[in-house]
Nucleic acid binder design. Structure first.
Lengths: 132, 132
DNA sequence: ATACTGTACATATGTAATATACACAGTAAT
DNA sequence: ATTACTGTGTATATTACATATGTACAGTAT
């Protein structure tokens, strides 16, 4: 599993790994009960220390997305598709909320914020799935 | 200037100060050319070290919001209201973008995200300016 | 001179990253 | 069955960096 990690990013390696693996799980790219790459394999493939992967997996355990079996490996937890979707939405709103508060504190109105988001999403939609 | 800083927050003291002072400036609560509290005063009032305030002010200098005069103090830069508004919007979108990407990576559609945001904003609007 | 300002330095603490050693689970060979 | 081996997760010690602090230095005004 190649993760395209960046050493330069502000985001720590651990949380990059968490974010990318979490995405694969929530998006349904990895089925429940199937084993994740061992920490050594993932570490080797992505040029990262074993501990770093371990810490990342620990984070995913705390989120309830995976679990470990000593000597066997890490496995994806069994979650309903609907639960996954709700987790994704909840995470999104949890991160969006302080952003909106900040914008309002900086003098923008909710109306203004709303408009901005809509035009932005429309722009994004027309651009397809392009990433910079 | 009392800032209501939290020692427990994940956010560092420096960036809390940056965020709160930036908000006051962009919202127009502090006029241009007026002096900010001295680092010692702000530090004393908010039970924080001088260096912490200093680092925060340095951050605001890098953002072009304030400037310093040795022996005199820190002063708010002269920016048009429109510029301030654009800065706030730009900052907001810059932070929103990766959130949306993450949501999409986690299997949500742009349509779904859009709907969620709208209902959320409507909820927020009806609640007035209440903060949890 | 005094009392305010910003600046610079040396130090402690916490977090992230690493390598290395340890402990458990399964499998193949004797 | 016992052993040895190779895979797995876990724990420890170290290093590097960012954050936060106190204290000393330098400019400005009265």
């Amino acid at each position: 599993m190649l993760l395209n990690l960046s050493d330069l990013s502000d985001e720590s390696l651990q949380s990059q790994i968490i974010r990318l693996v979490r995405a694969k799980i929530l998006a349904g790219d990895i089925d429940a009960h199937t084993s994740l790459p061992s920490i050594r394999n993932l570490a080797r493939q992505n040029q990262v220390s074993v501990i770093t992967v371990q810490r990342a997996y620990e984070g995913l355990i705390r989120e309830g997305l995976i679990h470990s079996r000593r000597g066997k490996g890490f496995f994806v937890s069994d979650l309903h598709d609907r639960t996954k979707r709700e987790m994704a939405l909840e995470r999104f709103l949890e991160k969006l909320d302080p952003l909106i508060d900040m914008a309002v504190d900086e003098g923008l109105s909710l109306e203004e914020v709303s408009q901005t988001i809509l035009t932005y999403l429309r722009e994004k939609e027309s651009n397809g799935g392009k990433r910079v």
